[in-house]
């Protein structure tokens, strides 16, 4: 014959097992404070695509304009989907960029013409005339000059070079 169930056990209320979130809360609070400290409105406008940008004391805040990235792979087109320089589409291949015979870059010229034509088609009041150039610190100076000359011939008159700010 089975024993009668214990009365004490019957009266005992079973506690729901819970996970202690306190330590995770502490961690989250620290991360949140750190991120709030490094929060920047310009961070939403521009994120660096290269980790070896030149350093400068210039203080001009980032602005959103048509941008190109210059790296050892050539002139690249930054996009929302491709943030890494290894996956960014190539606008100007390195052979064309490094060539000493060509002073201009026909591939870049075609791209810039297309961008301006698109602005006109969309009925934008102001057609793009500012080009943001993000170039690595070790890029030869002649590559920058080629980009400037090509863009100037298309109608761009201001160039914003992305640099890392130092005090």
């Amino acid at each position: 014959m089975a024993f009668a169930p214990s009365k004490a056990r019957k009266l005992q209320t079973r506690k729901e097992p819970t996970v202690s979130l306190n330590s995770m809360m502490d961690m989250m609070t620290i991360i949140l404070l750190f991120l709030l400290k490094s929060y920047s409105t310009s961070g939403a406008l521009m994120q660096p695509h290269l980790d070896n940008l030149p350093e400068s004391t210039v203080q001009k805040s980032p602005e959103k304009h048509l941008a190109v990235v210059v790296s050892e792979r050539g002139v690249l087109k930054p996009s929302e989907s491709a943030t890494d320089k290894a996956t960014m589409p190539i606008l100007v291949p390195i052979g064309e960029l490094a060539s000493e015979e060509e002073a201009a870059l026909p591939s870049l010229e075609a791209f810039l013409y297309d961008q301006r034509a698109m602005d006109e088609k969309l009925g934008k009041k102001e057609i793009a005339h500012v080009l943001t150039v993000e170039a690595a610190e070790n890029i030869p100076y002649s590559w920058i000059l080629k980009i400037v000359e090509t863009a100037t011939s298309v109608g761009f008159d201001t160039f914003d070079f992305v640099v890392t700010k130092i005090s």
Binding site: S56, T152, D160, F161
Partner: peptide, 9 residues
């Protein structure tokens, strides 16, 4: 911290 070096030829 990024900033822009403006060049106007």
């Amino acid at each position: 911290q990024l900033s822009l070096l403006e060049y106007t030829p």
